[in-house]
Nucleic acid binder design. Structure first.
Length: 511
DNA sequence: AATCTTCTCGCAACCGAATC
DNA sequence: GATTCGGTTGCGAGAAGATT
């Protein structure tokens, strides 16, 4: 039983008592709903707010008290509460200023950590703070203060419990909370709760100090993680590749993506969390420990199949890895070269289709290149262009069936290119009015507009008359020799040639 | 991490025509 | 008539990206 005062703090008098079952009902279905709702609309701690709050009925949760009028030093008569009988419950509250998340969420957080100790948990009368009760066996008038302190500082060390009103006779304004949490079976033996344990105190101090050194305070980290929607907006989870308005772009990018398994099973949490921290820090170089804690906390709560790692353990794991990375700079992330990047505005299915098609095309283009290079060598060496010859020239860079599949298409492409070159050369010939001369085009023929064509010299166009070219015959021959020596790799052969002669010498002949 | 989707490649078997 | 070679086809492997 506990003392009950119908007139509230305004007038704490009388000897009315209620049971905890009644208290529970009063909170769940508060008869003063209207007044309390009105209170919520007032500015917190404003004059009107305080006045209204004082009118609401309250209890002394720690027991039954006699209200005895006594004289103070000045000789004024004041009411003193004298303990008659302990209720066996310990009352704690947390001020709304210490809670940054939604209050129901915070209640959940408290239960996740302390459901084995708390028998009642609800919102406070202001609607934003919380209170909770611990049913304590072994509590006495003598050990009350020490036990209460023990719970505040050691058992509930993660919670920013209000220390404004600590006395045994403290009042508790009956709040309104239809979602009040009750578990009558929870009882805690407090006989051994002694504050004289120096190691404990020291441990807490050290932990706090360490946290402060890292730039965040224990209390804040533990009570008000950044909510996930804010984190999702702020943090990067994969390498950013700007595709602009295009559906996709092709660009080799060293790509990193953080992976969040749908379910992180037991035994994999440490490993997974550590990997995630590495990715987060790699992708967000300025990320703070607080942000990492907040994010991993969210994952721990939502992706562990309802069996999250203990909060302390989680915080420790995160902090340790964060420190290691900060100190060593080593971030263990798996990067890969991603070539096709699709526009995130497209649907997942479309993006997948595009990526597959483009990757297929890249692969095919590569085969085409190998085949084309081999064919060019064969032509230069005046050999027959057959799949088997191409295969031999390609020296294992491509399989025979693939060559058979594509070589005709490649031949067509080569033919088309040649036609284009002839066109350019013909144009150039007309421009130069040297119709009876044999020309060669050095390197790849240039694509120029008709207008530019008039103004460009032969040299600029890469047009070389045969007479001039003949003097370079030795170079041409040596190129073929190199092809014979090095096979299909035309680029390599030409490069070697460049090394020897210090000039670029790829020629095509136009007849 | 595992799975799905889409695509190309490589392999092997096969067919038919050309060649020896 | 046997062998060689070009061309086709089915099937599984593997690559890359997206999804869950």
């Amino acid at each position: 039983m506990i003392s009950y005062y119908n007139d509230g703090l305004k007038k704490v008098v009388g000897d009315e008592k209620i049971s905890f079952d009644i208290l529970q009902s009063l909170i769940k279905a508060n008869p003063n709903t209207e007044l309390i709702e009105q209170l919520h609309s007032e500015a917190y701690k404003s004059e009107r707010y305080v006045a209204m709050k004082k009118q609401l009925p309250c209890v002394k949760p720690h027991g039954i008290f006699d209200i005895i009028p006594t004289k103070n030093k000045k000789g004024e008569v004041i009411n003193t509460a004298v303990l008659k009988q302990l209720s066996g419950y310990l009352y704690f509250d947390i001020d709304k200023n210490k809670i940054e998340c939604e209050v129901e969420l915070y209640k959940e957080f408290i239960l996740q950590e302390y459901a084995d100790k708390i028998c009642m948990l609800g919102k406070s009368v202001g609607g934003r703070g919380v209170f909770f009760l611990v049913k304590a066996t072994g509590i006495t008038k003598e050990n009350f203060n020490e036990v209460h302190q023990y719970f505040r500082e050691i058992v509930f060390k993660k919670l920013p419990i209000d220390t404004e009103a600590l006395g045994i006779a403290r009042n508790f304004i009956i709040p309104m909370d239809e979602k009040l949490y009750i578990d009558k079976s929870i009882e805690v033996d407090v006989s051994d709760c002694k504050i004289n344990n120096e190691n404990n105190k020291k441990g807490i101090k050290q932990y706090k100090k360490k946290e402060e050194e890292r730039g965040c305070i224990v209390r804040d980290t533990l009570t008000s993680f950044i909510t996930i929607d804010i984190l999702l907006k702020k943090l990067r989870f994969k390498t950013a590749v700007d595709v602009g308005d295009a559906d996709y772009i092709i660009k080799p990018v060293e790509f990193v993506q953080m992976f969040v398994p749908k379910v992180i099973t037991d035994g994999k949490k440490h490993k997974t969390f550590r990997s995630m921290i590495n990715h987060l820090m790699f992708l967000n170089p300025d990320i703070t420990l607080f942000e990492v804690h907040s994010y991993i906390n969210f994952i721990n709560q939502n992706f562990t199949n309802d069996s999250p790692m203990g909060r302390t353990e989680m915080m420790r794991t995160v902090a340790a890895e964060f420190e290691r990375i900060t100190e060593t700079g080593e971030k263990f992330v798996k990067t890969r070269i991603k070539k096709v990047h699709t526009n995130s505005k497209l649907s997942g299915k479309d993006r997948n289709i595009i990526a597959n098609q483009q990757n297929g095309k890249l692969r095919k283009d590569n085969s085409f290149e190998i085949i084309e290079a081999s064919i060019e060598v064969l032509i230069a060496m005046e050999m027959e262009v057959t799949p088997i010859e191409i295969f031999k020239t390609a020296k294992g860079n491509i399989s025979l069936p693939t060559i058979k599949r594509h070589y005709k298409t490649v031949l067509e492409q080569i033919e088309m290119k040649k036609q284009a070159e002839i066109k350019t050369a013909t144009k150039a010939k007309i421009v130069n009015k040297q119709n009876n001369t044999l020309y060669a085009i050095q390197g790849n023929s240039k694509r120029v507009s008709d207008r530019d064509l008039h103004d460009m010299t032969d040299e600029e166009l890469g047009i070389v008359p045969w007479d001039v070219l003949r003097t370079k015959e030795t170079i041409f021959k040596s190129q073929i020799d190199l092809h014979k020596e090095y096979g299909a790799n035309r680029t390599a052969a030409i490069k070697l040639l460049e090394k020897n002669t210090e000039r670029s010498v790829s020629f095509r002949f136009i007849f």
